[in-house]
Design a protein around this nucleic acid. Structure first.
Length: 724
DNA sequence: AGCACGCCGACT
DNA sequence: GTCGGCGTGCTC
């Protein structure tokens, strides 16, 4: 009989000891009694003795052996995360698994159909010329057997053609185990010729052996994706696995389709929260068995099992969505770097506007800087960026006359325009012209946003909504004025001004279900839209070939935000949305409405000068002792009673000061949204000049924090926070 | 986090 | 007398 130490999904920093009679392997899932119920846990350690009194230790109920154990490498990665982010080990390990592995429901692997050419299949010429789809499919099947998904990348009507080919006796279906590592006869990409610059990047990465972190700084349109394709191709040829991390879920289906089409016969799986439990399990297991050569996923896929991992790519590495904002508050980019180090493989961080953290590391030599400076399509030029001084121009409901005229030109030329405004709704606040009443949310410190579509005032923080009042709730005055504009108002203005134009609004309200956004995208690509109005949803994603004008409406607020990263974020957002304008044959133009056209941020943006911008900002950050020159942790608390929240944080601060470590402990301050859903929120910032010092402090300070908090408070510790 | 145990106010 | 309020404490 031996003791196993098991990780359980409970908010306690420890493992739990159980006895087992049968042979048990590290990383295996077990059902154990816990309190009055049973839980699924993962065996983290096998030991001979326990520190606990014998009578307290219960036996394992059952060992689950219908799935492969978690590798000790992944367990080590999860242990590291638990320690680095100071989060309970069980709540780190268990939620990293697909939901099906967190339950005791039996796991079965269903076989799937693949298709292959029969011996008697006719040469390609015998298939009628007009049956292009069938011909493409036969060509692909001649390389190696494929599944339906792969065939669909060469033939839209794959299902129907397949039926025809099977009935003709040329193709047959056969069962395969999706977890089996099929021999990869052909995994080649439909590779395009690389520019010299791109080739140099590919060479630099492929010539590395062992761990190395590369920062690929490539302007929009410089062909980063083609570099990824070539690198992935190399890895697949040697039988390795690639992890490709991408920011958002709404980007994944297109990207998946794109990479499938580039690697028609490789096994690619996606991992993101949009998958069903069964799909997620299957994809995870395909990664675990090595059957999947490419794993494409959002931040959670950084915890996928990858036995043959040979390369990690983090695309849009600056994107804030790589940071999880609840539970284990990890940065998938940073975890990926640790993982690459652990596995001894290269990692490539790609971005047109790298985070200052990564850029700084590339400048000081911790990472290797790689650059793509030219647009891959030789004659494609960067868009011309111009400013409209919003205080010196005639404005129609927040849109300048100049911009409206330019939109009109695009309409007559059959080109598209995009108006970018980072606010949804009609107006961000409603005001009484008589007494100055503002549409405050009764539950939050924020304002309720006016939505004219359903005549409601809605709080974007807590979801509370009311009907738009006809009289001022304070003074009964009948005149209430919408202040500022959001996407709906801009859309309204455009409809009035261009009644014939086809206008499309793209924001979270207009794309309720995820199918809609897909439909909208194809409408835009088919040039069935003249003007798009939208939030940052429009900044990301694939190219819109007919788009030649981007208008940006009053983005200034980020320039005087209390968040020191706001300007960094705005710059990359504007760079990204600007990059949507213009193609090889049609130059793009960007018009920015601002009160501060001389602000250094806009100057650098106009010159497409990321280097200059980064240099000036890094200098400021260094002077002010901000990241990346300092390392931070944020303790947050929220609760119903203001005094409790502040008392807790002040006690925590006092406890920290007493430890007398070389860290700076700032004051307890209200969170940027001081009240949300009736909960008072405040925070305490800790800063040190090295990761090591910060971690040393947290190791002593953090364990006591839970005892200080009453159960009425919700607290969290955020390491390397992005939000303030 | 749950979910027990435990000690004080208004009810048949 | 008891039903139930939510404060404290433990989970291998």
């Amino acid at each position: 009989m031996q003791i196993v130490r098991v990780a359980l999904d409970v908010p306690l920093p420890t493992l739990f000891d159980y006895t087992v009679d049968d042979a048990v392997v590290l990383g295996q899932r077990v059902i154990v009694p816990f309190r009055r119920s049973q839980l699924v846990g993962v065996v983290m350690e096998c030991v001979m003795f326990s520190e606990l009194a014998v009578e307290k230790i219960k036996p394992v109920v059952r060992i689950l052996s219908d799935s492969e154990p978690i590798s000790s490498k992944l367990l080590a990665l999860l242990r590291f995360c638990s320690e680095y982010y100071h989060y309970p080990i069980g709540q780190t390990v268990i939620p990293a698994l697909p939901a099906r592995l967190r339950s005791d429901k039996p796991i079965t692997v269903k076989h799937e159909y693949h298709y292959r050419l029969l011996d008697g299949a006719p040469p390609i010429d015998l298939i009628p010329q007009r049956k292009t789809a069938a011909r493409n499919m036969v060509k692909m099947l001649a390389l190696q057997p494929c599944n339906l998904q792969q065939l669909k990348t060469v033939a839209l009507t794959a299902s129907a053609q397949l039926k025809w080919l099977i009935e003709a006796g040329w193709v047959e279906a056969f069962e395969v185990n999706p977890l089996a590592c099929l021999p990869r006869m052909h995994c080649f990409a439909n590779a395009h010729k690389l520019t010299d610059e791109q080739q140099q990047v590919v060479d630099a990465v492929t010539q590395t052996s062992g761990y190395r972190c590369f920062l690929l700084h490539g302007i929009t349109g410089s062909g980063k994706t083609e570099v990824y394709v070539h690198l992935i191709n190399r890895v697949l040829q040697t039988g390795g696995q690639v992890l490709l991390l991408v920011p958002e879920i709404n980007l994944t289906p297109q990207l998946e389709h794109y990479f499938l089409s580039r690697f028609p016969v490789a096994t690619l799986v996606s991992l993101h929260s949009g998958l069903s439990e069964n799909e997620r399990l299957k994809h995870w297991q395909q990664a675990q068995s090595g059957a999947a050569g490419i794993v494409l996923g959002t931040r959670l896929s950084v915890f996928a099992e990858l036995p043959k991992l040979s390369l990690i790519i983090v695309d849009e590495e600056h994107d804030a969505s790589f940071k999880q904002q609840d539970g284990l508050r990890y940065s998938a980019r940073d975890v990926a770097i640790f993982r690459a180090k652990q596995c001894g493989v290269p990692i490539l961080l790609g971005s047109a506007t790298p985070s200052f953290e990564s850029y700084h590391n590339a400048l000081n030599g911790r990472y290797e800087m790689l650059k793509l400076t030219g647009r891959a399509l030789a004659d494609a030029n960067l868009p011309e960026i111009k400013f409209i001084h919003s205080k010196q121009t005639v404005m129609v409901d927040g849109i300048s006359e100049v911009l409206l005229r330019e939109i009109a030109h695009r309409i007559t030329r059959g080109e598209q325009s995009l108006l970018f405004i980072n606010r949804r709704g009609y107006a961000p606040v409603l005001m009484c012209t008589e007494c100055g009443w503002l549409s405050d949310c009764k539950n939050c410190a924020g304002k309720m946003v006016l939505h004219t579509k359903d005549q409601r005032l809605r709080c974007h923080h807590c979801g509370y909504q009311i009907h738009v009042p006809t009289l001022c709730p304070e003074c009964r005055h009948p005149e209430l004025l919408p202040v500022g504009s959001g996407t709906q108002r801009v859309e309204r203005v455009l409809i009035d001004r261009f009644p014939e134009a086809r206008i499309l609004r793209v924001d979270r309200d207009s794309t309720r279900n995820k199918r809609t956004w897909e439909a909208m995208r194809s409408k835009i690509t088919a040039n069935e839209v003249d003007i798009m109005v939208g939030t940052q949803m429009l900044a990301k994603g694939h190219d819109f070939p007919a788009l030649t004008l981007v208008g940006i409406l009053n983005p200034d607020s980020a320039l005087y935000s209390s968040d020191f990263r706001a300007a960094e974020k705005l710059f990359s957002q504007l760079m990204q949305v600007s990059g949507r304008a213009g193609r090889a044959d049609k130059p793009g133009e960007v018009l920015i409405q601002t009160e501060f056209p001389d602000h250094p941020m806009y100057r650098c943006l106009q010159q497409h000068d990321f280097e200059g911008w980064a240099a000036s900002q890094l200098a400021e950050r260094e002077m002010a002792d901000f990241p990346p020159f300092a390392f931070q942790a944020m303790l947050r608390a929220e609760g119903l009673v203001e005094a409790d929240v502040y008392a807790y944080l002040n006690m925590a601060k006092l406890a920290g000061v007493k430890l007398n470590h070389p860290v700076e402990i700032f004051g307890v301050v209200p969170a940027s949204l001081a009240r949300r859903a009736n909960h008072v929120r405040a925070q305490l910032l800790i800063q040190a000049n090295s990761r090591r010092v910060l971690q040393q402090f947290l190791r002593v300070w953090q364990p006591g924090l839970a005892d200080l908090a009453s159960n009425k408070l919700r607290c969290s510790l955020d390491i390397d926070p992005l939000e303030f």
